[in-house]
Design a protein around this nucleic acid. Sequence first.
RNA 1: UCCGAGGUCGUCUAAUGGCAGGACACGACACUUUGAAUGUCGGUACGGUGGUUCGACCCCAUCCCUCGGAACCA
Length: 574
Amino acid sequence: MSSSAPAPAPTKASDFIRDIIDADIQAGRHDKILTRFPPEPNGFLHIGHAKSICLNFGLALEYKQKQGEENARCHLRFDDTDPVKEDTLFEEGIQEDVRWLGFNWDGFYHASDYFEKMYEYGEHLITAGKAYVCSQSDAESKATRGTVKEPGKNSIYRDRTVEENLDLFRRMRKGEFKDGEHVLRAKIDMANPNMKMRDPMLYRIRHTPHHMTGDKWCIYPMYDYAHPISDAIEGITHSICTLEFENNRELYDWVIDNLIDYANFPSRPRQYEFARLNLNYTVMSKRRLLELVEGKHVSGWDDPRLPTIAGMRRRGITPEAIRAFCASVGVAKANSTVDMAQLEFCIRDDLNQKAPRVLAVLKPLKVVIENFPDDQVDEYDASLWPHDVPKEGTRKLPFCKEIYIEQDDFMLEPPKDFYRLAPGREVRLRHSYCVTCTDVVKDESGNVTELRCTYDPETLGKNPEGRKVKGTIHWVSARHAVDAEVRLYERLLKDEAPPTGKDSEFLNAINPDALQVLKGCKLERSLSEAKPMDRFQFERQGYFVADQDSKPGSLVFNRIVTLKDSWAKQQQKK
RNA sequence: UCCGAGGUCGUCUAAUGGCAGGACACGACACUUUGAAUGUCGGUACGGUGGUUCGACCCCAUCCCUCGGAACCA
């Protein structure tokens, strides 16, 4: 997978995080700005992560521009503190996704790079009387934690001596104890109204090999301990995370404050929280995505219906569109749900400038042009771009007596404002002549199977005289058409928001039409050469991409997004 | 309600003591060999109540509502 064009430093309106950074620079608190994107390598990235990626890497790009190349950085750091769930396989996918989005990291790290330091700091906290080894069972520590309204109770192991704690902690590391036998806890306050501060666990025993450190360790640090230390060691200045970590910030600061003199960190990082991205008509949580994939409701992590980066990539959405979308939704602290229409706008807006226009008939209806010579083939130099896209280029578009048009472009008994084909009506064939429908062929059950038309030879490249032809429809020469499979994608869910109930209720909201596979579609000849990831606009229908399954002779296209369709909208209202 | 964070057009987001602005969505019109794109115009918002102030979305008080927090997950 080739990476996409690097993201330009965007000119982004300010937000509360940029305001904070500007104020920090103004006040001389930092001369370098360092951010980081810290995914846990236990799953696939989705568009919510893209927001965080654009923020963190985008910040580095912007401040490189403002402060100088050397004075801003963004690190990619895998937060690999739980060996039970994490894997190298996920790391590769995540790196690919970040690069595809157009970003390059200025440093590549793992939280596990710092395990030795973290352990050392653990001993320091013990020595300073700030941490102790607790030997309560899982159930006991749950029972003594209290509730959000009631204080917890001190562990009976809370007053172990420094010597005893040190000895126990060292033996934990050596592997003398079984999983769950002991943990290292911070000694803070079991009555703290913030549950995160009630002597939180710092280390747990896990006799599980780690994908980076192998079997070197059998004790692993918890997120709340590992994250601030990793940030501080790397010199991160602004540690940006999502709102659910607000309660963790107090502990983040506690860890830094109790280590900073001893550890001599290059920075005093600060954590800031922003609202994660929510999108309607889809699901974003790891759990729900997993359920869709494992339950075979979709074809895999890269199913084009999913909001995963891999899915959107296969869908044909460009990284530029995703970046523009992330910039457009902004960064704030209020929980919000962005309208899918906003994403779709960004996709169309980008592709409008990038996707050459071609003709493709998805649901073919044969048309015979009776007054056109049997063997004649016209060939037009048809522009690949509309007048308002400043690009040049044409392709040869063949035309002959028999063509296909879209079934939806013909109506037996049309309303007055139907600008397309109907018995006795005239329509413009895109890039070609105007034709008038003279006859309709039906099968026994009354279905329209073929149209008979006549063309006006005076209408090529000019308007007919004395009458106005309002509609223009697309078509494909029957003799020259190439067949293709076309996969029409729509929004994953039929409801704006999935049912609030937990469990699998959201599965009922799946849009059964989110994937519709069309075979026997008729594409113009020039598309026979299309390569996977080539994007086109099928005029009047939408933007499409050649799928990775596509091969010459058996073409497969995915619909990225439809065009806006004010006709369909108008019909829907009736 | 024990702690924390929030509440501005339908949606997302600005303005932070001085005319509530932009984008998407929506509607109308223009243009059109894509019912696309583009252009023009339009409607729609500061959770409630008090207070401070010449002036409050902004500051204060109070109420209401929403979200997050009790994994040996992150």
